[in-house]
């Protein structure tokens, strides 16, 4: 099982954009905790909604990070025997696996979208701040769809190495 080291990717600007977005969100997660703890001790005023904002940021980091994982091909895989297969069949194995992975991601994206619709249907919100939850679920669906697209595109391309 191994993670391939990052390779210089043709999708440089996309990576940079994803990097900045994820960076800002992670920093916000950290900041929320610090402000909440300091507020609690120094001013007896914890940050209302710190918990639920952290939860939303967590979902965003996971799903926005996903296309980046697909882009850099960093999903964890078992390469116990695949490395020992004859070189001639490797391109086929790779293409079939990427197609299959793309299909699984696409199905997950579709189901996330449906679940988002369900949440929107009953107006699900967060606990204290009453922020709507459905947009977060739609975002998760779109990001997973993006990862599926990236994976399909990779299946069409010849291997980089």
């Amino acid at each position: 099982m191994s993670r391939a080291p990052s390779l210089p990717s043709p999708a440089g600007p996309a990576r940079a954009a994803l990097g900045v977005i994820c960076g800002v969100m992670l920093f916000a997660m950290m900041g929320l905790t610090v402000v909440d703890v300091i507020g609690r001790y120094l001013f007896s005023a914890p940050l209302t909604g710190a918990t639920e904002l952290t939860e939303i940021l967590l979902a965003c980091v996971i799903f926005i990070g996903l296309p980046a994982v697909s882009l850099d091909d960093e999903h964890v895989t078992v390469d116990l025997i695949t490395g020992k297969l004859p070189a001639a069949i490797q391109p086929f194995r790779r293409a079939i696996l990427l197609l299959a992975s793309g299909v699984v991601l696409a199905v997950i994206a579709w189901r996330l979208w449906a679940h988002a619709g369900q949440i929107a249907g009953y107006g699900g919100t967060t606990n204290s701040l009453r922020l709507p939850v459905a947009p977060v679920a739609y975002l998760c669906a779109i990001c997973t769809g993006l990862a599926a697209g990236i994976t399909f595109a990779a299946a069409m391309r010849p291997p980089r190495d």
Binding site: R40, S44, A45, P46, T48, G49, A50, T51, E52, N127, S128
Partner: peptide, 25 residues
């Protein structure tokens, strides 16, 4: 001013109204 653990929803609002400092969890 009591730091009161609350789960959210109406309990959070009640804790706030009676003067407690709500701690979520």
């Amino acid at each position: 001013g009591v730091k009161m653990r609350v789960g959210g929803g109406i309990v959070h609002e009640i804790a706030t109204r009676i003067g407690a400092t709500p701690v979520e969890g």
